[in-house]
């Protein structure tokens, strides 16, 4: 199947503002079908804020946003309801529903489509094993009983259970120790290999970025500093970008 020419996500001159404070101005970029775009930036540069706006959870202060080639007017755009089903989101820290067990958490998106319970549960179990968890062991645990790595995997399972066209990962390896983070990244790579979905990855972790991202967008100084392939970005001549990617070359 040849990728459609329209980008999965397109931001055009988007600005983010909280109260009187401008977080980001005039950000423009596209996420093309099938690629993994890494969104990086130091703490406080507005990565998470931009992400919330890209998912149309909040109203932008200016600029245009398109999802799957369709223009989005704001958080209450009626088209969002259907478009969001095509997006899987792994929230920072997992955001699993603590009142439900793991299987119920993962089966929630298909259940929300009114699919029968046994089908939805089967999909949830498959998604859990895709994310590297054994559904027979973890399925009936409560999120509070999971370790950080397992909770992140369960959240990943919930994000991929409907096989979304766009997978959004917000700090997926945050708080995981290196071996667990590496295992998680490997699971993600395998997943991408199998399903060739589009990924928007927000992370601090250069190793994760290195392993997954086809292109990288760097935020800083209240704007989009640069965007390009990892090679282009690391060679980009800007003190902030230099600072950020120091030691990138020495990575495995």
């Amino acid at each position: 199947m040849s990728p459609p020419p329209t980008p999965i996500l397109e931001a055009n001159g988007m600005s983010v503002r909280y109260g009187p404070q401008w977080i980001l101005r005039d950000v423009s970029f596209r996420v093309e079908a099938g690629e993994c775009l890494g969104l990086v930036g130091a703490s406080g540069t507005g990565k998470s804020a931009l992400l919330r706006h890209l998912l149309a959870l909040e109203r932008t202060a200016g600029g245009r946003l398109s999802l799957f080639g369709r223009r989005i007017d704001g958080p209450d755009d009626p088209a969002l309801h259907l478009l969001r089903r095509r997006i899987g989101i792994l929230f920072q820290g997992g955001a699993l529903f603590s009142a439900l067990d793991v299987l119920e958490n993962v089966a929630l998106p298909p259940r929300a489509l009114h699919l029968p319970t046994d089908w939805a549960n089967a999909m949830a179990r498959v998604a859990l094993s895709e994310a590297g968890l054994d559904p027979a062991v973890t399925g009936h645990k409560k999120p509070a009983e999971l370790s950080g790595g397992m909770a992140t995997r369960a959240a990943l399972a919930r994000a991929i259970v409907l096989e979304p066209e766009l997978l959004v990962l917000d700090e997926p390896t945050q708080g995981l120790d290196p071996p667990v983070a590496r295992a998680f990244v490997t699971a993600l790579r395998e997943l991408r290999h199998r399903s060739s979905s589009t990924v928007l990855l927000v992370t601090h972790d250069l190793e994760t970025l290195h392993a997954l991202a086809d292109r990288i967008a760097v935020l800083g100084e209240g704007k989009l500093l640069t965007i390009g392939t990892p090679d282009e970005v690391t060679r980009y001549d800007h003190p902030v970008v230099h600072d950020y990617f120091q030691g990138w070359r020495s990575l495995p």
């Binding site: 089908w119 089967a122 498959v126 998604a127």
Partner: peptide, 9 residues
């Protein structure tokens, strides 16, 4: 995978 799960259920 959803289709496969459907067949299996």
């Amino acid at each position: 995978a959803a289709g496969a799960c459907f067949l299996l259920t």
